[in-house]
Design a protein around this nucleic acid. Structure first.
Lengths: 145, 145
DNA sequence: TATTGTTATACTCTATAACTATA
DNA sequence: TATAGTTATAGAGTATAACAATA
C-alpha cells in the first residue's frame, strides 16, 4: 500500500523549517543569557526572578515552573536573596511553606531585564501587521499540535 | 512629529507573537534535553556529538561552534571518549592540533538522537505545504532582520 | 503519615589563568 | 612569540537521598 506512514515528514521543505526553528531557538537562548549577564544574573536566576516579578510563589511551585528539583531552588533563591533581589516570607496559612517574593530592587532589575529582551521583538519589526498575524496563526497551530 | 520611533514594536499582536516564540523555544529545549537524556547524554554532550557526526573538528573549532571556552571542550570530549563515542586523532599537518571525531558507535548514537528529535518535526506535521512555505518565509525574514 | 523546604553529596558545565608542546 | 590543547581552580546548576518542621 502507498499509504502515508504515521512518521513525521522528512521532505526538504520541512527539514529546512526545522533548521530555521533551531536557529531561532539558538539565537533566542544566546541573547537571553547575554541579557541576563548584563545584569550579572545567570540564566536560571533571570528566569526565576522574572517569574517572581509577576507574583510571589512557594519554593515548591517555583521548582515546578522551572522544571527542576526543589533542592535547586533553594540555592538559586539563596544567591538572589544575598543580593537583596528576593526575600523569603512565611506563609501564616501553612507554616511549612516559604513564599519567595521580589524586593523593590528585584522588581526594578526584572523590569530592566525585560527591556533588554528586545532581541525577541526586534526581528519582528521588519514584518508587516499581516505577516505578524500569519506568523501568530502558524505558531499557534504548531503549538496546539 | 508623528514619525515612528526606532524602538521595537510593543503592540499586543507583537507581544503575543514574542510570547509564542518564547513558548516554542522553551518546548524545544525541554524536549532536546529529554531526547539527550534518553541516550544518557547531557545537552552539551548531545550538541557536541551532533556536530562531530557531520565532520571531525579540531578542539578549538568545537569551542567556537559551541560558543564556550576551549577548556570546557576538553572535559566534554573526555566524557564522550570514555564512553567510546568519540576519539581524538592527531593532525599530521600541525601536531599541536587534535581532531575530535565520532566513532562508529558515536555515529549510531547520533543517528538515534536525531530520530528522537521528532518533536521539532512533529508540530509541523499538521501544517499544509503552503503553510510550511509561509512559515519558512517568515522565519527567514525574521532571521535576516 | 505526608508534605515543605533544606542540607549533603556528587556530577556536569562554565570561565579564568597557568602550563605544555608545538609552530 | 604565538597558538592548540590541557590542567587547576572555583562557581553555578542539576539530581538524589536523608533530614527537620509542620500538617
Amino acid at each position: 500500500m502507498a499509504t502515508q506512514k504515521t512518521t513525521t515528514p522528512t521532505d526538504p521543505l520541512t527539514l529546512e523549517v526545522v533548521d530555521l526553528i533551531g536557529t531561532v531557538v539558538a539565537r533566542y537562548h544566546e541573547e537571553y543569557e547575554e541579557a541576563a549577564g548584563e545584569h550579572s544574573l545567570t540564566g536560571a536566576q533571570a528566569r526565576l526572578l522574572s517569574l517572581l516579578s509577576l507574583e510571589p510563589l512557594p519554593m515548591r511551585r517555583l521548582a515546578q515552573k522551572l522544571k527542576c528539583e526543589p533542592s535547586n531552588v533553594t540555592g538559586i533563591v539563596d544567591r538572589l536573596e544575598a543580593r537583596g533581589l528576593v526575600e523569603r516570607r512565611p506563609n501564616p496559612k501553612d507554616r511549612r511553606v516559604k513564599l519567595a517574593a521580589v524586593t523593590e530592587e528585584g522588581r526594578r532589575l526584572a523590569r530592566g531585564l525585560r527591556e533588554s529582551l528586545d532581541f525577541a521583538r526586534e526581528p519582528l519589526a521588519g514584518l508587516s501587521r499581516e505577516e505578524r498575524l500569519a506568523l501568530r496563526g502558524l505558531l499557534r497551530r504548531m503549538l496546539e499540535g
